[in-house]
Amino acid sequence: MKKIYTTFQEAVKEIRDHSTVMVGGFGLVGIPENLILGIVESGAKHLTVISNNCGVDDWGLGLLLENKQIDKMIGSYVGENKEFERQVLAGELEVELTPQGSLAEKIRAGGAGIPAFYTPAGVGTPIAEGKEIREFDGREYVLEEALTADVSLVRAARADRFGNLVYNKTARNFNPEIAAAGKVTIAEVEELVDPGELDGDHIHTPGIYVQGLIEGQQEKRIERLTVRQEA
C-alpha cells in the first residue's frame, strides 16, 4: 500500500533545493541515519531543516552542515556542533531557536491542523519579541505558530507496509509529531514486518501519516556513554 524504497537516495527524492525538511531524533537517538546520508548524496541545497538538534560534526544532520546544504535551522539546542557555530558566526546559516516544548507543540499543531497556540514558555524573554502576548486568567502567554514540512523523515524500530510505526524507548522523541507534520513522510525502519504482526493496540504512529518506507541498518552512535561499574 505504501511505497517501499530500496535505496535511500530514491527515498529522499522529494527533497529538492529550498525544501523544508523535518527530521526526527533527540541528539543522535532516533535519527533517520541513512535517509540523512541520502540527502548528502542527493546534494539538495538551501534547505530549511526543523529538528531538535543539528547532529554532531561528523554524523547526523552535522553531515548536511558540513556539505553546506542547510540555509536555515529551526531547533532548541545546537551546542554539540563546532561547524554549526562557525557557520552561524560567518553569517552562512540562519538559526531560529525555539523552546523545546514549543517546538514539539508547533510540530504537533502543524500535523493536527491547528495554526497557532498560546504557551507560557518564552514570555518575557527574547523568544517572545515580536510575537503576540495575551493574558488568560491573569497569566501571560505567547502566540506560537504551527510548523509543517515539505518532507518529514523519521526513524522507527518496526513498521508494516501500511505505514504503521512502532518506536523503541527514547528513540520515539519527536518522531511521531514529525511524521504527522510532513506533506510527505518517509520512515526509515529497522525492521519491516508482515501486516498483522504489529499489535494494533501498540502502534505509535498510525500509517495514515506515512507515505514511504525503507528498511535500513543503523549505527546508533552514542553521544555520552555513561555506565555504572559491575558490583
Binding site: 537517538v29 523503541n168 524507548k169 555513561t226
Partner: peptide, 21 residues
C-alpha cells in the same frame, strides 16, 4: 533508572543530557 551496566547499554535509551540511562 540508574546508569546502565556496560552490558545493559541501549543506544536508544538516553536522558535529556544525552547520557545512556
Amino acid at each position: 533508572g540508574p546508569s546502565p551496566y556496560e552490558s545493559e547499554v541501549d543506544p536508544d535509551l538516553i536522558n535529556a543530557g544525552k547520557e545512556t540511562v
